[in-house]
């Protein structure tokens, strides 16, 4: 799952939902799709959780932390 970008993961979630809602899946595939969807959605939530705020500025090829100067 790692190689999926976040955007691809979200598109996959949509695809799985559509498949599950079409009635032509047998029970076993439905269960498998369900688990796949749930696992993927937890993965997405996890990515959102793990992202951490970084405001940086490029100073001679180096990313340093950037803070807004105080308003005068």
């Amino acid at each position: 799952m790692e190689e999926l970008t976040f955007e691809q993961a979200m598109q996959k979630l949509e695809a799985i939902a559509n498949e599950l809602e079409k009635d032509d899946l047998d029970l076993d595939t439905s269960v498998k799709k369900f688990e796949e969807g749930m696992k993927l959605s937890q993965k997405c939530n996890q990515i959102l959780q793990e992202a951490e705020k970084k405001i940086t500025v490029l100073v001679n090829d180096e990313e340093q932390d950037f803070t807004l100067q105080k308003e005068d």
Binding site: E14, L20, E21, S30, F34, S41, L48
Partner: peptide, 27 residues
């Protein structure tokens, strides 16, 4: 907007549960 994204994910999970429940009932 993160809240929107989280909400979307939550909605997908719902759709999965509902769809599976319906499938099981059908069976």
């Amino acid at each position: 907007n993160i809240e929107d994204v989280k909400y979307d994910i939550y909605m997908y999970q719902n759709r999965y549960k509902v769809a599976l429940k319906r499938k099981v009932e059908l069976m």
